[in-house]
Design a binder for these strands. Structure first.
Length: 204
DNA sequence: CGTCCGATACACT
DNA sequence: GTGTATCGGACGC
C-alpha cells in the first residue's frame, strides 16, 4: 500500500514516525531495490537551527514547497543524503533518511555500494542509504507521488518492534532536540555521533 | 567494541 | 574563506 501525501503533511517528528518502518522502492533502469526504513531524523524548518531550511536559500527552497518531494544535499565533498519534505505547505520541515535494511535487490545495492562488508551495512547511514537507492543531486525536487517517479513510498508490512528517539547525529545546533527515531536493536541503525562542539581549542 | 582523523567540493558568508 | 545532517580505515582495548 502506498503512503499518501497527507500522511506526510504533518509536523516533522510525526512524519518521521510514519516513515519509520515504511518501505522505499527504487526503480532505475529496470533494477529494483527496496529498503525498509529503520532510522530517520526530523528537521523542523525555520524554527530549527539544525535545518538547512533555517535560512531560505536556493538550496533549501524545495523544503518550502508541499510534502512528498525529495530534498537531496551534498556533504563533505563526496556524499549525497536524501530527505523527504514533510509538513503542511510552507513549513519547510523534512525527514532525513538515515538508515534501512535492504529487503529486495541485494545485487544492485552491492554494486552501488561495494565497500559494505555485511548486508546490514549496505543502507546503514544516510550517504549509504542514498547510494543504494540510486539518489543523486539531480533527483532533488522529485515529487514522490508522481506515478513515474524513481522512488515510491509504501507502508511497512512489519511495524518497528520498538522505537526509541534521541538527539540527532552530527548536528551542533539544537542538539537537545530528540528528533532521531530508530528501531531498537536493528543492526542497520547507524552509530550515534555527536556534532562538532561549538567551542574548539585553538593552537597556541 | 571504541575513538581519531583525512578525504573532498559545495553552499553560504 | 569557512564549515559541513559522512564514511571508512587505522589504531587501541
Amino acid at each position: 500500500m502506498r503512503l499518501t501525501r497527507s500522511q506526510l503533511a504533518v509536523p516533522a517528528a510525526d512524519a518521521a514516525r510514519v516513515l519509520l518502518g515504511a518501505r522505499v522502492v527504487s526503480t532505475i533502469g529496470g533494477e529494483r531495490v527496496v529498503v525498509r526504513l529503520t532510522e530517520v531524523e526530523a528537521y523542523a524548518g525555520p524554527l530549527d537551527p539544525a535545518s538547512h531550511a533555517y535560512r531560505r536559500t536556493v538550496r533549501s527552497e524545495i523544503m518550502y514547497g508541499p510534502a512528498g518531494h525529495l530534498y537531496v544535499y551534498f556533504v563533505y565533498g563526496m556524499h549525497w543524503c536524501a530527505n523527504i519534505v514533510t509538513g503542511p505547505d510552507g513549513t519547510a520541515s523534512a525527514v532525513l533518511l538515515r538508515g534501512g535494511e535492504v529487503i529486495r535487490g541485494l545485487a544492485p545495492a552491492r554494486e552501488r555500494r561495494p565497500t559494505a562488508r555485511r548486508d546490514a551495512d549496505l543502507a546503514r547511514g544516510p550517504a549509504g542509504l542514498a547510494a543504494v537507492l540510486g539518489v543523486r543531486g539531480t533527483d532533488s525536487g522529485t515529487d514522490l507521488f508522481d506515478p513515474d517517479t524513481m522512488l515510491e513510498l509504501r507502508a511497512g508490512t512489519r511495524p518497528p518492534v520498538s522505537v526509541a528517539h534521541g538527539p540527532r547525529v552530527g548536528v551542533s545546533a539544537a542538539a537537545d532536540k530528540p528528533w532521531r527515531f530508530v528501531e531498537v536493536g536493528n543492526p542497520t541503525v547507524s552509530a550515534y555521533r555527536r556534532g562538532t562542539r561549538a567551542t574548539r581549542s585553538r593552537p597556541s
